[in-house]
Design a protein around this nucleic acid. Structure first.
Lengths: 280, 280
DNA sequence: ATTCTTATTATCAATTTGATTATAACACAT
DNA sequence: ATGTGTTATAATCAAATTGATAATAAGAAT
């Protein structure tokens, strides 16, 4: 059949002729938390943490999963992600970026569901409002090598771990494909989604200022370094770290005392001067 | 209603209760081509090129677009991308990676269609089989600054350009959102899809070996440098380039003569020694 | 043989990194 | 008040990397 114009074509268009599926978005909400390690001296240690939700219904009843939900027919993917993020945290203006779209056929036992994963970073200190009843922050301990990723999740009530095998997918870009080896507590393919998010975040830590989305307005360089160390799972040398970070932050006249040692200056993220290309 | 088990739940599950939509994949197939600049001396110049398809039907009849197609209900996104890639090039084992999922509501005038874009890189010399009748390679000339991207497409028969405005979306990661300012020849939101692909490729050129997916087995360092230069749209200093590339390639005993100057050695991509972390 | 052109290596200063050591200043114990 | 432990912060210096320019190489054209 021939149409004379785009308008005419669209008027007769039968949208039912193509197969349709459902889409969801899942949000990996990362943050760093302070855990008291020495109650007496009020020393705290930073942890890399993720927000998980306990499933109350089938499928995967009682397993933990990422906050997520269906994408409305008149809703953009970004809007769906922001809606879900806001419903979990009551926060707006949060850093969020699209991560990857997971489209294997049987990732959901109910039906064909393609899910676009997003990664959000928040400063937990902003979380005045309570998170929902069925949600919980889990501290993560990540051990990664060429072959596998081992993530331990801990929310003080329960602890579990997942093990993911990495297989080099492409030699030129060092991309890996992930296979879950051990996972008794995370629903769907969310172990892999989280692993992908961790990988993205680790990479972006090194070449962007993304970390500041997880920091409060004022922080010490030691605290900032701890955040890098706990996410990258490696110790950094102080002087090298300070050199790298130096032109991204500015010293304020505030200090943090009480640590039983020399007080540390509080710094603040420095809004980049666009003319100064070296800050990029 | 309460179910006793996951099996029972799934047996009664009504998949029609959620809104459904269609998904497509679009593939940005990038390559580099040699264009003769001096017929007499057989001098050629490299161009960064992309494969476009002319739409024969509505919507966007007679406009150019990326090769793409609907994702089958029992087909993974990756499989759909590979299927479409193979249908355009008759090539398998091509480098392909997922790029981004475009999910705005009205990106297709027919109905709600979410599209996951993939980027593929090929060496055009491998293309023995002809590309389809309605497809064409376009050389691209890319001019980019902080504010905009200007891409000129040229396939020797026609030439057109698109202009895209960049708006800084996030300060910490220098992410931009793209708005099409001028576009009379590309269908859908494919101008933005292509711009996103170019951005991804430019970035990956600098920290991966992705470029070798576009190179023949044997190449001179001059040719390789030209590929970098034409994609990044800037001149590189020879010694610096050679230092960076040195441990990624190995010299063979073949040479390329006939250029009216000292012959150049032919190199080959060196498979990385996994123990040598410095090559990563 | 001379000249042109690009290939390839050499050279060297400038800058950036890696790593260690030195100094600062608070909190606590004596 | 003094000393000790702890982390903060700066200073130092060798090693490695980068930016930039100059020097040499070798086929092809004249």
């Amino acid at each position: 059949m021939q149409y004379k114009s785009e308008e005419e074509f669209l008027k007769h268009y039968d949208s039912s002729k193509f197969e349709k599926l459902s889409m969801t978005t899942d949000i990996i909400i990362f943050s760093v938390s302070d855990s008291l390690t020495d109650n007496y001296r009020k020393l705290s240690e930073k942890h890399f943490s993720v927000l998980l939700v306990k499933r109350s219904d089938y499928p995967f009843k009682d397993k933990w999963c990422l906050p997520g939900g269906f994408v409305g027919i008149n809703e953009t993917l970004d809007d769906a992600a922001k809606r879900i993020l806001a419903s979990e945290t009551n926060l707006h203006n949060i850093y969020i970026e699209q991560l990857y779209t997971f489209g294997s056929v049987n990732r959901d036992p109910r039906m064909r569901i393609v899910s676009t994963a997003y990664m959000a970073l928040i400063d937990k200190n902003m979380l005045n409002e309570k998170i929902p009843e069925n949600a919980s922050w889990f501290n993560m301990k990540i051990l990664e090598d060429d072959k596998s990723i081992h993530i331990t999740f801990d929310n003080d009530v329960e602890e579990f771990s997942v093990v993911i095998k990495k297989t080099l997918k492409d030699l030129t870009t060092d991309r890996y494909s992930y296979d879950v080896i051990k996972n008794n507590h995370l629903a769907f393919d969310h172990a892999i989604v989280i692993a992908s998010g961790i990988s993205r975040l680790k990479n972006k830590l090194e070449y962007t200022d993304i970390v500041f989305n997880m920091m409060p307005e004022y922080f010490t360089l030691g605290e900032l370094q701890q955040v890098y160390e706990v996410i990258l799972d490696k110790k950094l040398l102080d002087p090298a770290f300070r050199r790298i970070i130096a032109n991204k932050v500015e010293k304020t006249d505030k200090v943090k005392t009480g640590g039983g040692h020399r007080p540390s200056a509080l710094f603040r993220y420095k809004i980049k001067n666009k003319r100064d290309k070296k800050n990029a």
